[in-house]
Nucleic acid binder design. Structure first.
Lengths: 347, 347
DNA sequence: ATGAAAGCGCTAACAA
DNA sequence: TTGTTAGCGCTTTCAT
């Protein structure tokens, strides 16, 4: 079991000062070719690598990003997490992960723990903003960006899809297809994503002179989505909605199960279903769910870009509110307006 | 933006020495009630929290666990990741995550980076062991445990499900149901999970006097699984397999899509499909996949337990090879043997 | 029980 | 370009 090897040991072996070793491992420091050579040789011989923690202490930069994630069971998040982690790794940062889920206690405690690690920045992915954690970070001087959540408070950077516009698109699509009993199954009311999707949806419905035909709340939880669907369809067959916008795919897939396998209805012949996110499962042929795509790649890129901007230019960097437009991916879970054809399916 | 507050500042405000402050925040140190009170008061007033990194430097314990994960698109992993992270958080550790995916370069580089953070331990989740990373950690004196992978090398702790026994169960189930043309779609050959599942499956088939009727390789990738399925069924209808064991659910679900929607065959009337893992999607009614359950909770508990054991008793702790038996979850994607009934489905 | 002092492994002035 | 020196914020002897 090799013992921990320090820069001092390398220095001694190489016959130089300890700071010379430090310089060799500091990009852009001034070292002569000769010294560099000697040091590198000694370093590899001993298997030396700089201690990131020690470096962090003195430099004040840990190159650690705290990532707080609420749910991993909505399949949008594993995808996003993977991309975030990869992108940050490429930039020389690493991700310290914090689950803000059920088991973990108070989110505020989690935040304190994060800050204890002297993270250079924090990404909050779909974290309920009940108590304003983000503000707490700002106070500590740690840059934050909200991923897939927005906040009315100014001065906080957030990256989302354009949920309002997405909601509108779904309503317009339903109306173009001639639907007349259009319903909505909502996500968790505390989420800006939920509120914006609903607002856009209702607005476009209103523009067409329609009103919401039925409304239930699923809270972004599959089980509650099932219950919501059962309540919504527990009426005489002719009084059932003929089109339902479900606030995310995660719920929409569960709703499709209820409709097809419990109620024995056909999709889209009896009822059209549209979701939101375009998670991989939405493209699975047994569901083939029409949905609004959240462009995860773009969202991640914007998130990382904004965060690094704040880290590197603490004074200058202005808060951004990014909302990325996403296309309606037309599959077969919703009736097509005249003249539309399903887009090529991801195989 | 509150500046960083140090133990020294707290000490001054409280009128005690800096070490007194340290003691207050060190569980089990000897401090008088009075001092503790004064210190805590000053600390909350200033919003002081100990700097974990500084503590790590002097104590040599970072309370960081490096977690290397390969795929997050196999839904077994997000689940496991969430549980691992939660459990470790409860034990006062935090997870530094490393994606060993396609984009990230060499895994060995990733390992070096991990060790640079002076992690107290490492969990390798489904990481290809091509170059023996685990050994590399051992050398550095960092405890490792392999999650959902095993290694023949002694002295390395691993936690898996009992893949061999799982493979056997599937074969026995097919045979009990009277299948006579039994096929297998394999995962990535470098994975011990794949090899063990196949070995158990073949062995039980052999015990019943049968041989594998068809064999293709899907490498644990959905796209390759689809190709494998197409190749496997590209024969005269009467020559097609009547039962297929697919090495994990992730692939099995894709295979079901090919069989039902491309080939127009019925499941389980024309062909039985069984998977492995019991990911959440396997229970979705549009698939309702019969599968071997990996007991994620148990696997995680064992993993954390073993890792902490190694961390806390570096000398004593013996390497463990844990293989957790998992039940066959009988749903409707495979023909039932006489007298069997489907188990209650997770709703 | 408490304070003083040493030092974890490193970077960053400052001299030379 | 290089070495010397002073810390980063904390824990931990060692005295008292």
């Amino acid at each position: 079991m090799a013992e921990k090897v320090t820069s001092l040991q390398v220095a001694q072996l190489a016959g130089v000062s300890q700071s010379a070793v430090s310089r060799v491992f500091t990009p852009g420091a001034s070292v002569s070719k000769k010294t560099e050579e000697k040091v590198r040789k000694a370093a590899t011989e001993l298997g030396y690598r700089p201690n990131v923690l020690a470096r962090a202490m003195v430099s004040g930069k840990s190159r650690i990003i705290g990532l707080v994630v609420a749910y991993l069971d909505n399949y949008f998040y594993p995808e996003a997490l993977e991309k975030l982690s990869n992108e940050l790794q490429e930039q020389g940062y690493h991700v310290l992960i914090f689950m803000a889920s059920r088991t973990a206690g108070n989110i505020d405690d989690v935040m304190e723990e994060i800050l204890d690690y002297q993270v250079d920045g924090v990404i909050l992915a779909s974290v309920p903003m009940s108590s304003d954690i983000a503000t707490r970070c700002q106070q500590a001087g740690v840059p934050v960006v909200l991923f897939n959540r927005s906040q009315d408070i100014d001065g906080i950077t957030s990256v989302t899809s354009d949920n309002y516009s997405g909601g509108r698109k779904v309503a317009e699509f339903f109306i173009a297809a001639g639907h007349g009993r259009i319903a909505y199954i909502a996500g968790w009311q505390g989420a800006s994503t939920q509120r914006d999707r609903e607002a856009g949806f209702r607005a476009a419905l209103g523009d067409a002179g329609q009103d919401l035909y039925a409304y239930e709340i699923g809270e972004f939880l599959t089980e509650n989505a099932r219950l919501a669907a059962r309540r919504m369809f527990d009426v005489a067959p002719e009084d059932r909605p003929d089109a339902v916008f479900v606030a995310n795919d995660h719920m929409a897939l569960a709703v499709m199960d209820v409709i097809r396998f419990e109620l024995g209805m056909r999709i889209p012949e009896d009822v059209s279903i549209v979701g939101y996110d375009d998670v991989p499962q939405a493209g699975w042929l047994a569901y083939n769910l029409t949905t609004i795509r959240q462009r995860a790649n773009l969202m991640v890129a914007e998130t990382v870009d904004a965060l690094l901007d704040h880290i590197e230019n603490p004074a200058v960097a202005a808060a951004r509110k990014v909302a990325i437009d996403g296309p309606l991916i037309v599959r077969t879970s919703a009736r097509l307006p005249k003249g539309w054809t399903p887009q090529r399916m991801k195989t």
